[in-house]
């Protein structure tokens, strides 16, 4: 699906490794992205917490969602929301499971039956491998190399432009993990996601995935 930028941004934030402290004149956009690509080459697992805040016209007040995520190279991802409701999914290549309230009662599904989720996970894996070429097919990528480094994605397709304005990914000052993602939609809806406790190449139980 074309309209899942929040999830994309989230993944971008999670999987983009910190490029390291910059020194001297700001590096070019290409060099920053290349640093990210080189750093991602060594990622085998990722895990951490997230907090998502939605300021949407749908709700009277901002809604906050908390949870955890897990990634295992090359095609495994688990996404768990813990508040306000327990919900999530886990995928291994084309096969997936998803649950509501009780993860032990997860139901299987095929990725082809959920194009939105499939597209989301495809993009996740592209970002893990630092595949900016692929991302640039759908977004104009601009880099603000000054600290904190941020990458802004602006949609190229008219369909996506119709509702999405931009996605801004902000890295931590030490560039070791993504700090925040801002998703700005055309209708004024905004989503901010903050990541904490991100662990790179830490232990991840394979049983978390189908």
């Amino acid at each position: 699906m074309k309209n899942i930028p929040a999830a994309w941004a989230l993944v971008i934030c999670l999987l983009s490794p910190a490029p390291g402290r910059a020194a001297g004149p700001p590096p070019s956009r290409h060099k920053v992205l290349e640093k990210i690509r080189l750093a991602t080459a060594g990622i085998k697992t990722l895990s951490g917490n997230f907090m998502e805040e939605k300021r949407w016209v749908l709700f009277k007040a901002p809604v906050r969602i908390r949870g955890r995520f897990y990634y295992m190279k090359p095609h495994r991802l688990r996404w768990e929301q813990t508040t306000p409701e327990i919900e999530g999914f886990a995928v291994s290549k084309d096969q997936g499971i998803r649950w509501r309230k009780d993860p032990s009662r997860a139901v299987p599904f095929h990725m082809d039956s959920t194009p939105a989720l499939k597209h989301f996970t495809d993009q996740v894996f592209a970002w893990i491998q630092g595949d900016f070429t692929r991302i640039r097919k759908r977004y104009r990528v601009t880099v603000a190399p000054n600290l904190p480094v941020s990458v802004t994605l602006t949609p190229l397709s008219e369909a996506e432009k119709a509702f999405l304005d931009r996605i801004v990914i902000v890295f931590s000052r030490n560039l070791k993990h993504v700090q925040t993602v801002h998703i700005h939609e055309k209708d004024g809806d905004a989503t901010r996601i903050r990541f904490t406790g991100v662990q790179i190449n830490g232990p991840v139980d394979p049983k978390l995935f189908p």
Partner: peptide
């Protein structure tokens, strides 16, 4: 509410509204 707050909720928001 449940669907818009799910990971792919942003994709479904317009349809659910």
């Amino acid at each position: 509410r449940q669907r818009v707050l799910s990971p792919s909720g942003i994709a479904e928001k317009a349809l659910l509204r």
